[in-house]
């Protein structure tokens, strides 16, 4: 954005002030995220930069908080770090368990949300779809309705999942979904669905529907058409929708607080405990790892988006 030659001195001044304001806003956006990275290497149990850290003295830095991520919750954290020790880490360490739970729940929630969401997006983008607007509004609403309301609803619902059948005259008792993996996975899939719908329908808006007819006229079954024609073209949208769904699940804490049991502790749940109770720099070590993961995910999504736009003939932007 170059300044026009006819700009008055006041406009020149404003132009530079504007640049400074923009830089300040970018600093506001990004510094709070990056500040945790150096602090996670703090040798002291503080949340601030110690004088040693500021003078770049190596003694001021350490990996002790990353080490704590492995040892917290172990019965015998001391000892030789051999195969047996690492096995113990894998089986007992609190944060490792939380990471395993987060990945298991996130993986299945993503699969569920992506498969169902992609199918629905295919239906929703057909011009013949009846009640399109209403159904779209319902499917997007998990993103809009406050999470506390969803969590409260699930809390009651999961304690007796067959209760709504009473409306149809069936009085059944069918166990509980609270404190189960299935319950958390279903809740997280619901929360991830809007993101899949939004990204896949956006990709499909540039999809040439006549390709489906072309494929059918050449003798392909609907199944072949889907896997050979539609899916390769919408794959970038599906993958970024899936990544959104995974991140939603990976970051979700309120539903977990309400419906998960002690066996389903996830990383955000563990961080929540850490922030609420004893806030130790170990949290910052986790935060650093998560920031690095989100940078990786962001890069993936950006690359996918550009590939998708190239495929659709839109100039990258």
């Amino acid at each position: 954005m170059a300044l026009p030659v006819y700009a008055t001195p006041l406009e020149r001044l404003w132009h530079h002030a504007y640049r400074v304001i923009c830089v300040a806003i970018f600093v506001f956006l990004i510094v709070p995220i990056l500040v945790v990275i150096p602090l996670s290497f703090n040798a002291e149990p503080y949340f601030t930069f110690t004088p040693e850290m500021l003078s770049l003295d190596p003694a001021g830095y350490s990996l002790r908080w990353y080490d704590e991520l492995l040892t917290l919750g172990m019965t015998t954290p001391e000892g030789v770090r051999d195969g047996a020790w690492w096995e113990q880490v894998w089986a007992e360490a609190t944060w490792v368990k939380a990471a395993k739970n987060s990945i298991i729940i996130g993986f299945w929630a993503t699969i569920l949300a992506t498969v169902l969401g992609t199918l629905a997006a295919l239906g929703l983008s057909r011009p013949e779809m009846p009640y399109r607007r209403l159904i779209m509004a319902i499917l997007i609403s998990p993103m809009i309705v406050p999470i506390i309301i969803i969590a409260t609803g699930l809390f009651f619902f999961y304690s007796n999942p067959c209760a709504p059948l009473a409306l149809f005259g069936l009085d059944l008792q069918c166990g509980r979904l609270t404190s189960t993996y299935l319950g958390v996975i279903m809740a997280h899939a619901t929360l991830g669905i809007p993101f899949v719908i939004i990204t896949v329908t956006a990709t499909l808006s540039g999809f040439d529907q006549s390709l489906i007819r072309a494929s059918a006229s050449l003798g392909a079954s609907p199944r072949t058409t889907f896997f050979k024609v539609i899916l390769p073209l919408i794959l970038p949208g599906v993958v970024s929708g899936a990544l959104f769904a995974f991140v939603t699940s990976f970051d979700e804490v309120v539903a977990v607080l309400f419906i998960a049991g002690p066996d389903q502790q996830t990383i955000p749940r563990q961080m929540w405990n850490g922030i609420r109770e004893a806030i130790s720099p170990a949290i910052l070590a986790v935060a650093t790892i998560l920031v690095i993961i989100s940078i990786a995910l962001l890069t993936t999504v950006e690359l996918l988006r550009r590939r998708s736009e190239r495929l659709r003939g839109v100039s990258p932007g």
Partner: peptide, 28 residues
């Protein structure tokens, strides 16, 4: 037939969302 086909694609997700989202909130 085209309408029913489009709806059938959406139906599984709609049923899932009604089951895990609409009904629990209504019940609450």
């Amino acid at each position: 037939r085209a309408r029913r086909r489009a709806f059938l694609l959406v139906a599984p997700l709609l049923a899932f969302v009604i089951f895990t989202f609409v009904l629990p909130i209504a019940q609450m």
